[in-house]
Write a protein that binds this DNA or RNA. Structure first.
Lengths: 213, 213
DNA sequence: TATGTATTTGACTGACCAGTCAAATACTTT
DNA sequence: AAAGTATTTGACTGGTCAGTCAAATACATA
């Protein structure tokens, strides 16, 4: 009995993600999202209790697909260093794709939204915090490998190291958004990650001055 | 002829800075600011052409006083390392004060606002970008000293190094805001800065695990 | 005290905001 | 085809938004 499920909800989630990522939570209205998704506002409130709840659901849905890709990188039979290199490249590519699609550097959707609404919407703040934590734990097994093969000191606080890696990435990505420029992200992210991990980098990769967007 | 200047404009700037720093640009209305400053909206638009223009003026005014303190730290006759240590402590203290005053971790007002509005208000994005740049140049003379005394390689790209220092700070401060927690900022900022500078840190200062807000 | 200007006020727009709801519709099952 | 439920719709609310403006007021000068 009843009707089959439709794609209305996921369409709202995707549209909201697109719009909020480009601009911000405060600059995008429920009407904007509905209009862009070609869905009436009554339907919106059939699926979501509030704008804030939609934002949280959007973060979760978006992170779920992002998480899969990160886990994939860190499950490959490559060396720990290569994994972090791949992570840096992956992040740059994601930003590049968004740049090509939206015409501007978009930054990290979770951190931007989390930072914006941390002071007003506890649920959004909590979700952003949770996502940071979930992402940092993905590194654990790889960090353990690095400890095992003496690339990291045995007394390394893995939880803290994971948090530092995330922090390094988020700093670079946020500054790229503010500057609307991907050059530094492209040139410095790998190096910053290695530095955070306390690893030496091949000298051939230390050039600072590539000129390209 | 005419009337003496009043403090209305600066009161609006301070109030706006307070409110936006705590929450966000989008969550604070012109009415909110006027109400908190006990100034009528007509007066607001006597001094500012728009809400966005106020935000830019707020950023400039706020950075001017912040800049003085940073320049002071980097003009003291201390060693380069001590200066960066003092910078880390200063940033933590600022966040602690804001925490005590507003009841939450507030983050970096320039970066939060810049990131929030980068996609919507070009003037705000431009001002945030400018502030990042101005702040990073403050480090130049100190970085040069470090090169001169061989604490940094002679081929160091100072502009890039300055940008990396800012990025490191902004990452940590933003994550502290999202987590609404100053512990990691307190424990890790010094170390992260030293790592960004490529310096070794005294082992006595490497403890990760202080437990205190 | 009179004049001129800088500043302040409050009442006002029209658009937009998040959120509501009863009714209409679509589809699945029997 | 009838019954029942999931979904969609559009019209609605009351409040808030950024921004406007003519009139009132304060003050410095002459």
């Amino acid at each position: 009995m009843g009707r089959s499920p439709t794609n209305t909800k996921s369409k709202l989630l995707e549209t909201a993600n697109d719009l909020i990522w480009q601009s911000s939570y405060g600059s995008v209205s429920v009407d904007d999202i509905c209009k862009a998704a070609d869905i009436k506002k009554g339907s919106f409130y059939y699926y979501f209790e509030s704008k804030a709840e939609l934002a949280v659901a959007t973060m979760e849905a978006s992170f779920l697909s992002y998480e899969i890709e990160i886990i994939d990188i860190f499950s490959k039979p490559t060396s720990p260093c290569e994994r972090f290199e791949n992570l840096a490249d992956f992040i740059y590519q994601k930003q590049k794709q968004a740049y090509d699609k939206y015409g501007r550097v978009c930054g990290c959707p979770f951190a931007s939204l989390g930072s914006e609404m941390a002071g007003n919407e506890a649920l959004i703040q909590k979700k952003a915090d949770e996502i940071i934590h979930r992402q940092s734990t993905i590194f654990n097994t790889t960090l353990q490998e690095m400890i095992d093969c003496a690339q990291l000191p045995v007394d390394t606080d893995m939880q803290n190291m994971g948090a530092q890696i995330i922090t390094t990435i988020l700093g670079q990505v946020m500054v790229a958004r503010i500057q609307n420029n991907l050059v530094n992200l492209k040139n410095d992210l790998r190096r910053s990650l290695f530095q955070t991990l306390g690893l030496q980098i091949k000298t051939s990769e230390r050039s600072h001055q590539d000129q390209e967007q």
